[in-house]
């Protein structure tokens, strides 16, 4: 095995190629997709000298193992996990140099859910509609990793490397606090339901995935029965299906839907949502609904 590739030795439970997503095609029914923890991806790409939008690997729970076909710089981050190169412990959260034939082992997440692996030059699978991301809802982009597969790497761009020392790594949350703006369909819910949303604790359900963070907790009661005619959905939408349990839409969410959206989570809080393991307590904090334009910091 030679050339600018990495071979998949152990794919892990679910490892996908992700970049910053397939923006601009929602009107054709194409989800945005892309990495769930975008902060981690941007930082890792800077660490290995890529532009922030280069494609990386997103693991789920138990990491993955890869063999380098060439000398390449890698960085593992996101959910903290043990990292080994040819059996020896290596640094997490910083750039590591692999020689040709080196085995990179990304261990199970110690905290959080999703670790990311960035390679110098980025994963260079063929883009679909401008993105290399795997979209698990609609099947666009490359299939999840399988053992024996070879992933092509892009050429290293020497000019983009900037200094990154001591990068900040916010740990996965013990409690997930999601700031929300109420609406657009908060008027479909009872006053008590809005009170419940703002004050009661939820927990991340095991049924969560890249499409949505599903939550267990007190159901939200509707003031208006039935379904809406389908309407456009955004990243972070808190959709409430008939069972009353809120679902926070993540990157692979459908582009339209007929269940009412009671509130929308701030985009900046969704990276932490990507790392919240099942059972993590969740609180919603409504932020000012109306205010002077220009408002507060994001």
């Amino acid at each position: 095995m030679t050339g600018r590739t990495v071979a998949v030795v152990r794919p892990g439970a679910l490892t996908t190629v992700q970049d910053l997503g397939r923006v601009g095609h929602a009107h054709l029914g194409v989800p945005r997709s892309g990495a769930l923890d975008t902060g981690a991806v941007r930082l890792l790409n800077r660490l290995v000298g890529n532009t922030e939008d280069a494609a990386v690997l997103e693991t789920t729970v138990d990491g993955c193992a890869l063999r380098a076909g060439c000398a390449v710089t890698v960085a593992v981050g996101g959910a903290p996990c043990p990292v080994r190169v040819d059996g020896r412990p290596a640094a997490w959260g910083t750039a590591v140099r692999l020689g040709p034939g080196s085995l990179l082992e990304v261990g199970a997440a110690v905290r959080g859910l999703r670790s990311y692996v960035a390679f110098g030059g980025g994963i260079a699978v063929e883009p679909v509609l401008g993105s290399r991301s795997t979209d698990l809802l609609s099947g666009l982009g490359p299939a999840p990793l399988s053992a024996g597969a070879d992933l092509p790497l892009g050429a290293v761009a020497p000019s983009v490397r900037g200094p990154v020392d001591a990068p900040p790594w916010p740990g996965p949350p013990d409690e997930l606090v999601l700031r929300v703006r109420l609406g657009p369909r908060d008027d479909w819910f009872t006053r008590e339901a809005l009170e419940t949303l703002a004050t009661r604790a939820y927990r991340v359900s095991t049924a969560s995935n890249r499409i949505g963070l599903r939550l267990d907790g007190p159901p939200l009661e509707r003031a208006v029965p039935g379904e809406l005619p389908s309407e456009g959905m955004v990243l972070g939408a808190v959709q409430v299906p008939p069972d009353g349990h809120p679902v926070v839409f993540l990157a692979d969410h459908p582009t339209t839907g007929g269940y009412p959206v009671v509130a929308v989570v701030r985009e900046g809080d969704l990276g932490a949502a990507a790392q919240a393991v099942p059972g993590t307590p969740v609180r919603f904090v409504p932020v000012t609904r109306r205010g002077p334009s220009g408002g507060g910091p994001r």
Binding site: R181, G183, P184, R185, E231, G232, V234, G236, A237, V261, V264, V265, R266, E267, R289, R298
Partner: peptide
């Protein structure tokens, strides 16, 4: 209708 910080319906 406002939809989060950056969208309108």
């Amino acid at each position: 209708l406002r939809v989060g910080d950056r969208a309108l319906l």
